[in-house]
């Protein structure tokens, strides 16, 4: 994604902010939709489009959980493990999902060797009524999910094409 692409995305909303720095976060989120993470070239493009240094935009990006500075899978599956979900079995759910994917469960993000799916523990997703709940990229959080439903969802995600824009 080029700086021009990013400018085309943020220029129409620039007038809504008294300071153009506010566009850094929307620019980062938009830049991420292409590859699903922010490689150095994407950060450079955001820097050019917003007029801030690459070091600055990277420092902002590094603050937020949903901006990725390392490669992640075609789809990112976030499994909520905070208290309400824990009380309804999120720990076993994520372990079962990792087993289904053939990856080692870790507190951080782990990606399948084929790059199809990144599975990660998430802090409270704001859907405790649906516990245990999960979120695929930034789609609507779903739940409550049993193990077999969750595994079936993983199979579906693996088989499906990547969305054109990866909002995560």
């Amino acid at each position: 994604m080029t700086a021009a692409d990013i400018k085309a995305h943020i220029d129409p909303i620039r007038h809504e902010y008294a300071d153009g720095r506010s566009l850094v976060l929307p620019a980062l989120k938009y830049a991420q939709t292409e590859q699903g993470w922010l490689p150095p070239e994407a950060l450079a493009a955001v820097a050019e489009a917003t007029g801030y240094s690459q070091a600055y935009v990277e420092s902002v990006a590094s603050f937020y959980d949903r901006l990725y500075l390392e490669p992640v899978g075609k789809r990112v599956v976030s499994v909520c493990i905070t208290l309400s979900c824990m009380l309804r079995g999120s720990d076993e759910l994520i372990e079962g999902m990792c087993e289904h994917l053939g990856v080692e469960h870790s507190h951080g993000a782990v990606t399948t060797p084929d790059g199809a799916i990144t599975i990660q523990e998430a802090q409270c997703l704001g859907a405790c009524d649906k516990a245990p709940c999960i979120q695929v990229d930034a789609e609507n959080t779903i739940g409550p999910l049993g193990q077999s439903e969750a595994n079936a969802l993983l199979d579906e995600l693996r088989a499906a094409d990547r969305p054109r824009e990866l909002w995560r």
Partner: peptide
């Protein structure tokens, strides 16, 4: 104007939210 964060509990604290809305670390 609708503005989206990017995953940070602390941005619910009002001044952190303002920092985030100003394009800074929250």
């Amino acid at each position: 104007t609708i503005y989206l964060g990017a995953g940070a509990y602390i941005c619910g604290e009002e001044t952190a939210l303002l920092e985030s809305l100003e394009g800074k670390r929250g």
